[in-house]
């Protein structure tokens, strides 16, 4: 594990294949929660936190429970190392979504009990996150890219940053936009999409960026 490869993953997740603008994940909160800068910031923080957690947890579960290998826990404990390791990868989607839903509930509970300050910033955004496809998306991407534990963590964290960056930029633009005279039919979501298109165009400039 070199530092450089982690840096490549991080820059890739934030700029080159930005979760919102190039991969189209988490569009619903991107359009829905980007009217106010303050809300966008809270949502972004919640996503970064849950994404990092989810990356780590789903990676661990996939590697030690679902993937057929000799270190598979089911193979070790229940089958006692006999026969061939079970291939449960087809349960990936259902396991991941349940794990993420449970994780979000758990995080919500812990934050409520321990930190009222954090609860005020993140609290209302946490329930929305379960159905945010960015979380499930990053978990599956970690597996399909063949990342290890640390790489998954970095990818999850950086993808969250990328999401937040896009969200905050958008919120800043939309706050300014409220003062301008937009044609009636384009007000609200349509103009937000056009803005997103322009931002996506700008981010397209990062593709092909070569590091190292």
């Amino acid at each position: 594990m070199e530092f450089q490869s982690l840096l490549i993953i991080a820059v890739g997740a934030i700029f080159i294949s930005n979760f919102v603008l190039e991969r189209f994940l988490g569009i619903c909160p991107y359009i829905g929660v980007s009217q106010k800068l303050h809300a966008a910031f809270g949502m972004g923080m919640a996503v970064i936190f849950v994404m990092s957690m989810a990356s780590v947890v789903t990676w661990t579960i996939y590697t030690y429970l679902l993937k057929p290998s000799t270190t598979n826990i089911i193979y070790r404990l229940i089958m006692k190392g006999q026969g061939s390791p079970p291939d449960l990868t087809y349960l990936r989607t259902i396991t991941f979504i349940l794990v993420i839903a449970t994780l979000v509930q758990f995080v919500e509970m812990v934050i409520q009990k321990t930190s009222p300050g954090l609860n005020r910033t993140l609290g209302i955004y946490l329930p929305l996150i379960t159905t945010n496809c960015a979380i499930l998306g990053v978990s599956i991407l970690n597996i399909e890219s063949g990342y290890g534990f640390i790489e998954s963590l970095v990818n999850g964290f950086a993808s969250g940053i990328g999401f937040t960056l896009a969200l905050i930029l958008m919120a800043g633009l939309r706050e300014k936009l409220e003062l301008t005279n937009v044609p009636r039919a384009m007000r609200g979501a349509p103009i937000a999409f056009i803005l997103a298109g322009c931002m996506s165009l700008a981010f397209l400039g990062f593709t092909g960026l070569k590091i190292g």
Binding site: A185, M186, G197
Partner: peptide, 24 residues
């Protein structure tokens, strides 16, 4: 550009605007 990511945002934004305009 239209089949690259920006095209998706632009198309959906314009179509949505068109629909609003028809409604109005």
């Amino acid at each position: 550009l239209m089949i690259l990511p920006p095209g998706a945002f632009l198309t959906i934004g314009l179509l949505m605007g068109l629909l609003h305009w028809i409604d109005h």
